[in-house]
Design a protein around this nucleic acid. Structure first.
Lengths: 158, 158
DNA sequence: CTTATATATTTCAAGCTTGAATTAAAATGC
DNA sequence: GCATTTTAATTCAAGCTTGAAATATATAAG
């Protein structure tokens, strides 16, 4: 299997192919996201924004500042304020003042928050494993490689 | 290059790999979507929902019923009602009664709507071509193949 | 026929998200 | 020091989206 040389496609054809790819990428990720959202609600009585916030916090045991969370999740600051407010009311997160900067707080999961998230995360991983079950390790490796490349391209365009 | 046999990974490792893939898929498509949304607003003074509706209508010159549009775009019926209301006020779409079914209307682009969309679509394609510029035809073909497969998997799980 | 069920669309209240304005504190420049 | 600019977080009004209820019509069953 010789790799097809890029020159087989005209720039116009390549542009159309990239557009088709984008539409398929959007469709697939949208369908998975809808499915995850639906199961979070029906199986766990949870929402995706709450899951996402706890997910990034779980990876940073030392906590994250509000603006770090919103940057990571690409949503507005005010949005994160509201979500963390509610999670904190429920005893799942904690605002810890940052020594030496009285404007900032580090948000952490409480032990209860860690427990709840660990449970959700395991179930979530099971869903994804089922949804992506049709992809073998070659498929996965191939897509990850290209998605990483895409991610770098997006960094450049800033 | 021998294909890596699937058995090299334990089911646990495969599950983790699928999860990583999903996170990267979500990240890439979210970043592109944000970028498209931003440029639609700043360069064309337009919104993604409006663009999406016109986009599906442009592919169906005979028109589409409201529920067909909402199913295609995976958004609520009521949402489409609002968007088509505004597009119609602006003379870009038209509600045509369906003969023999007084409940239904087919929504079409007006000639003006077609013109406006053609202009937007060309610019949009240019953006996508730039954003995905780092992917060659092999990359594109490889991703499309796997995304199609994923799409089929999602159909099964219904 | 007529009742029941299904389909097409709209309306609307509730919740989510954004972006701009605000408040407060820290960092920088002179 | 003092003024300016930047950074962190919150508040809030406007717009978007959903899901459920309402309306109207069509189809199916008896």
């Amino acid at each position: 299997m010789t790799p097809t040389p890029e020159t087989e496609l005209t720039p116009e054809q390549l542009s159309k192919a990239r557009l088709r790819l984008w539409l398929k990428l959007l469709r697939a990720s949208g369908r998975i996201e809808d499915e995850v959202r639906r199961r979070l609600r029906s199986d766990l009585d949870w929402t995706l924004p709450r899951f996402d916030v706890m997910s990034v916090l779980a990876r940073q045991p030392e906590g994250m500042k509000m603006n770090e969370i919103s940057k990571k999740l690409r949503v507005s600051n005010g949005n994160i304020t509201g979500i963390v407010d509610k999670l904190t009311e429920e005893g799942l997160t904690l605002r810890v003042p940052v020594p030496g900067d009285r404007r900032a707080h580090k948000v952490c999961l409480t032990p209860k928050g860690e427990d709840v998230f660990a449970e959700h995360a395991a179930i979530h991983e099971g869903w994804i494993n089922g949804i992506l079950g049709g992809l073998n390790s070659d498929d996965i490796e191939g897509m990850i490689r290209r998605l990483d490349q895409l991610d770098l391209t997006l960094d450049e365009g800033r």
